[in-house]
Simulated scan of single mutants.
Amino acid sequence: MADAPSENFYAQLTPESEFDRLAEASAYVPLPEDWYVGSADIVGSTAHIAAGRYKTVNTVGAAVVSAQINAAGGMTFPFVFGGDGAGFAFPPGHLERARDALARVLRWADQSFGFEMRGAIVPVAEIRAAGLDVSVARYRPSPTIDYAMFAGGGLAWAERQMKAGRYRVEPAPEGAVPDLAGLSCRWTPMKARNGSILSILVLPRPGAAPAAVAAVSHRVVAMTRDLARGGHPVPPEGPSVTWPTGDIAIEAHASRGKGSLLRRKIELLATTLIANFFFFTRLKVGSFDPTHYIKVTRDNADFRKFDDGLKMTIDCDAETRARIEAVLEEASAAGIVSYGLFEQDSAIMTCIVPSITSDNHVHFIDGAAGGYTSAAMAIKGRPEAEAIA
């Protein structure tokens, strides 16, 4: 077991409330040398997206985080959602639990949805030996939640190693299931109100000056300030619900454990019908206030982040999109960044809700028709893609 300062490193970081500040390298603190980085994604996710399964892809990606949260037993650790997967970091005393939780998700993704999923756990010391780093910051979008931001290129390097088959975590034995308590996907897709939902992915080019990369990120974020609520894709009144939801089967797979899938679907149909009644009427029941819950859901949404680069899912008009693309194209031509953009007509939200009566629920935002995964594919189609592969 590592010493307490290493174990408690992330919990002791002071959250940053200004998103702009996170474009600067000085906002980040290197992970302790004895920590580990975990990574996972779905193999062939673009084909699943083309087949109309992006909500399922998103849920499986979020399941990586959900399983780690439940395995952590209350420990605060950094994680980031990537659309078709996730990245996270943890101290050495948590290694076996993290590996087991990840292995169970890899098996569950195949058993429940036929997804081949890969995962890896990489020592931070080996990332640094490769000449990169993993630094983190905590960003607080609302008074009740904060999200990890990553910099240094190490998380992206770990993902590349995973795709090359190194540091591999094997799936758990047949029949193993992860603890995905709290993982849900009940909100209806959120239609664009300004024109389109724009997924933005901006990655620093190898050798680019950090100050130049930060300047590009500052310019892009500044352009979103002219959009309503900074381009926040969740409506001001919060997300909406319908019944029955078409995502019941996905959530049933996530929450049934080893029980009957049919029984879990019936249970979810009943509980969501009751929940939707209170969301529609806004009637309070006990300590649960649906109006407050929806407001917190909106405010807690993770629609922009730094994950070894800038990622945003915004409700964007055509003029702002053109201005953003012009800035990114100029920066790309200058060898500063690579970028990918992807438009769709709505956004989706996947949630991790430990308790409906607490305000620390996590809400991951992505585009509804490809999102970050399709933006990444747009980068791969650009001439400079070889430099960041």
Rank of each mutant, 00 (worst) to 15 (best):
A254F: 13
T313P: 01
I324Q: 03
L268H: 04
D299I: 06
T59F: 14
G207W: 05
I274G: 09
V285R: 11
G154E: 00
R186P: 00
T245Q: 15
M1F: 12
P354H: 03
M349W: 13
I348C: 14
E170M: 09
A71D: 11
R323Y: 02
A222E: 12
T242P: 05
I314F: 06
V105M: 00
G257P: 05
E170L: 11
R282L: 00
P189E: 15
A125C: 02
F342L: 05
L31A: 07
I127P: 04
D179N: 07
G165C: 11
E16S: 13
I145R: 14
T350H: 03
G231F: 03
L95A: 04
D247E: 13
V64I: 13
F79M: 08
D34S: 08
A40V: 05
E237D: 15
A130D: 09
T56A: 13
R99I: 09
G114N: 09
R264W: 09
I336W: 02
R219S: 10
Q12H: 14
Q161V: 03
E126D: 12
E267S: 15
A181H: 14
P383Q: 09
P210K: 07
A376R: 08
R219I: 06
Q161N: 05
F150L: 07
A129L: 06
C185I: 14
D307W: 09
G367K: 00
L132G: 04
A389R: 14
F278V: 03
G238R: 02
A137V: 07
